[in-house]
Design a protein around this nucleic acid. Structure first.
Length: 154
DNA sequence: GCCAACGTTGGC
DNA sequence: GCCAACGTTGGC
């Protein structure tokens, strides 16, 4: 089982939005970056765990945990001309973009903030991709050690 | 294949 | 709103 970090802008979709869904399950759609796409399509497996990270908001940080309930499959929003995520270059017979389905495991009792994570940028979390300068990937791998360390910060 | 221009991300 | 960093596009 592998670990990941998924970014979402809470204005668009927050962990509370996920918690409010009847089955607390959603398709992680709208990813339009090839590196992130490759991970959704090829690397993330059913049963993997991921941090739900809030970005572009007053308090960026890790908000909770989700589990992958369905591995990569084509992103239907790319096929819908009326959808914000529509991409005419993604075709049903040759999909360009992918999603995974995730289910809420739990919302943390508090946000583990980016500021706190940074305190360990020189030690336990020195390789955490989200702390790298200029990092913009919305899907990144997290090692087991990083995962356990961040969990213990709650 | 190079690279300038442009668009997007995301913290502040 | 600003702007650094990065990805993508498109002319050559």
């Amino acid at each position: 089982m592998n670990h990941w970090l998924l970014k979402s802008e809470p204005d668009t979709f927050s962990i509370d939005d996920l918690a409010a869904l009847p089955k607390k399950t959603t398709s992680w759609d709208g990813v339009r970056n090839y590196q992130a796409r490759n991970m959704l399509r090829d690397s993330i497996k059913k049963g993997d765990s991921a941090f739900f990270y809030h970005s572009s908001c007053p308090v960026p940080g890790v908000a909770g945990i989700v589990s992958v309930v369905k591995a990569g499959y084509p992103d239907a929003t790319a096929f819908d001309p009326k959808h914000d995520y529509f991409d005419a270059d993604s075709r049903i017979d040759a999909p360009r973009w992918y999603v995974v389905d995730v289910k809420l495991v739990r919302k943390f009792t508090r946000i583990i903030t980016l500021d706190e994570l940074r305190e360990y940028a020189g030690s336990a979390l020195k390789d955490l991709l989200i702390l790298r300068r200029g990092n913009r990937l919305s899907v990144t791998p997290v090692t087991k050690k990083e995962w356990d360390f961040i969990l213990a910060m709650e």
